Simulated scan of single mutants.
Amino acid sequence: MELKRLSEMDLITGRPVQNRRYYHVNKDHYMYEGMNRLIRNYVQWEQMQELLEEIEWQNVYMASEEQPSYGLEYIVEVKKDSQDAGKQVLLGESIKVTFVTPDTKHTMEQTLVMVHRFGLGTTNVKPQVS
């Protein structure tokens, strides 16, 4: 229902791929910059970047649960041999960050929403939800 409303408002665009539909934020919408600042603040993206600066990571996801035990949960994909694999930390008071390997990620029951790809030292990036 909400995806339909956002699409009708032209805040997001969707495209079908086989039996799925992929949505992207419409960066040309007049409300994009203000909403981007609001969302970045809510998901504590700057604090997340600081945490990731010292870690060799591949992908960052947000986990989606109907009733999460924390406000939000980031899932950070690291290499199989990473010393960070399996760790969990708390970002602020309400955001859990879990470090997983590609094998572990595929066994997770949560829906994962891609936030950013291929970190490996990348800094000052804006979250790009797709």
Rank of each mutant, 00 (worst) to 15 (best):
M1F: 14
M1D: 14
E2K: 00
E2D: 06
R5M: 15
S7F: 07
D10Q: 09
L11S: 04
L11K: 02
I12T: 05
I12M: 12
G14R: 00
G14V: 01
R15I: 13
R15F: 02
R15Q: 13
R15T: 09
R15P: 10
V17C: 14
V17N: 13
Q18S: 08
Q18V: 03
R20Q: 14
H24E: 15
H24I: 03
H24W: 12
H24L: 14
V25K: 06
V25M: 03
N26M: 08
N26L: 03
D28G: 00
H29P: 00
Y30V: 09
Y32H: 06
Y32G: 04
Y32S: 10
Y32T: 00
Y32E: 15
G34K: 02
G34S: 10
M35F: 08
R37W: 07
L38M: 01
L38S: 12
I39D: 14
R40H: 05
N41T: 05
Y42K: 13
V43F: 01
Q44S: 07
W45S: 04
W45E: 10
W45M: 04
W45T: 00
Q47V: 04
Q47H: 08
L51G: 06
L52M: 12
L52S: 09
L52T: 01
E54V: 04
E56S: 06
E56W: 13
N59G: 09
N59T: 14
V60G: 08
Y61K: 02
M62Q: 06
A63Y: 12
S64F: 04
E65L: 11
E65T: 06
E66V: 06
P68H: 09
S69W: 10
S69C: 15
S69D: 14
Y70L: 13
G71P: 04
L72G: 02
E73L: 04
Y74L: 13
I75F: 01
I75L: 09
V78C: 10
K79Q: 12
D81S: 09
D81L: 14
D81Q: 03
S82M: 01
S82N: 11
S82Y: 00
Q83A: 12
Q83H: 12
Q83D: 10
Q83P: 11
D84Q: 08
A85F: 08
A85E: 15
K87H: 13
K87G: 12
Q88V: 09
V89G: 13
G92Q: 05
G92I: 04
G92L: 08
E93Q: 09
S94H: 11
S94G: 11
I95W: 06
I95Y: 04
I95L: 10
V97H: 04
V97Y: 12
V97W: 06
T98D: 15
T98I: 12
V100W: 03
V100N: 07
T101P: 02
T101Q: 07
T101W: 07
P102R: 12
D103H: 03
D103F: 01
T104S: 05
K105T: 05
H106Y: 11
H106V: 14
Q110Y: 02
V113S: 07
V113D: 14
V115D: 11
R117L: 03
F118R: 06
L120F: 12
L120W: 04
L120H: 05
G121Q: 06
G121C: 09
T122G: 05
T122D: 09
T122W: 10
N124L: 01
V125C: 12
K126P: 03
Q128K: 06
V129T: 05
S130V: 07
S130M: 08
